[in-house]
């Protein structure tokens, strides 16, 4: 029983981060119909922002060697600030890699390449500025919380509980925003049909910016949380998450918000269930799922089927 509960917690806390990550993909996909390949890099930026804001010092290899902010914020304050900074980065990415294509009426699939270019720039900028070494966010920044909690006999790291709680909170806030607010409804309208939405008086450009901002915010928060629970393994560490996020995205259904959450949790749990001696294959789990789902139900678990229009 304890073992099962432990497994459940491990899986859900990892899955919650995947969900946060995939939600960012989904928001952009729902309004633009393309995948933002710079998303992984924005996630990485969020982790580094969090590290700097809690007062971490830059190592010796980058241009900014030895840089350290004169203040050290507690984690609960640093994380949302890092999210906001990541949102700003996402807006810049939108401005340079997505908007020019829209303005020129180019093939939307080109955004795959331009966003990838933006991602390459961001990742290498990080490497140039702070070097390739790994950093970790000490659990001490959480304040005087115990390192582990005992829940019904299962020993659970406090960080995991936090991951779950913060992700749950963000997901709830996001769904309230999408279904309850004016701008959230505008987002739904744009994802339904951008031109009609524009005709009805919705500023599609503005909605797309909002989607990118929120997407960057979620990615930045997810980055900070992973930095806390595991570590920041260098400028490239977002790429693996970026790929898994794709798996989550397709599993849940492209463009579906509840789907992204469900997909994240399923893949997190499935990975937690991979036995230790087969752990090398863990990274293939999400892609195996993804592949099966695409073949059996291409629209994803909660997505809507596409029809062939002439």
């Amino acid at each position: 029983m304890e073992g099962l509960l432990q497994l459940l917690f491990n899986g859900l806390s990892v899955g919650a981060v995947y969900a946060l990550f995939a939600l960012g993909y989904t928001l952009v996909f729902s309004v633009l119909g393309v995948i933002n390949f710079a998303h992984g890099a924005i996630f990485t930026m969020g982790a580094y922002f969090t590290y700097l804001l809690i007062g971490g010092a830059v190592g010796a290899n980058g241009l900014l060697a030895g840089l350290q902010f004169p203040f050290a914020l507690p984690f609960w304050l640093a994380l949302p600030l890092a999210g906001i900074a990541s949102a700003a980065v996402a807006l810049v990415v939108e401005r340079i890699a997505f908007r020019p294509l829209r303005d020129r009426g180019s093939d939307p699939l080109l955004a795959l390449i331009t966003s990838l270019g933006a991602g390459v720039i961001l990742v290498n900028l990080i490497q140039l500025l702070v070097g390739a070494e790994s950093y970790s966010i000490p659990v001490g920044t959480l304040g005087s919380l115990p390192a582990a909690l005992n829940i019904a006999g299962a020993k659970v790291r406090t960080v995991q509980v936090m991951l779950l709680a913060i992700s749950g909170l963000l997901l709830a806030a996001l769904s309230i925003w999408i279904n309850g607010s004016r701008s959230g409804k505008a987002l739904q309208a744009v994802s339904e049909d951008p031109i009609t939405a524009q005709l009805l008086g919705i500023n599609s450009s503005r909605v797309i910016q909002i989607a990118f901002g929120i997407s960057g915010f979620l990615a930045g928060m997810a980055g900070g949380l992973v930095g806390l629970s595991i570590s920041i393994a260098g400028p490239y560490f977002g790429i693996g998450y970026g790929l898994k996020g794709l798996g989550v995205l397709v599993l849940g259904g492209l463009g579906s918000v509840p789907g992204a959450v469900l997909g994240g949790l399923i893949i997190g749990l499935a990975e937690a269930c991979v036995p230790a001696d087969l752990s090398g294959y863990k990274d293939a789990v999400s892609f195996g799922f993804l592949f099966l789902v695409l073949l059996i139900r291409p629209q994803g678990l909660l997505g809507r089927p596409q029809s062939n229009k002439v």
């Binding site: 492209l254 294959y281 892609f287 592949f291």
Partner: peptide
């Protein structure tokens, strides 16, 4: 049988599965 971005993602998945194996 998949189209557009779905085909792209499925083939990325194939490549990754192959790499992990």
């Amino acid at each position: 049988r998949l189209r557009g971005i779905y085909l792209a993602i499925a083939t990325i998945a194939l490549v990754e599965i192959l790499r992990v194996v």
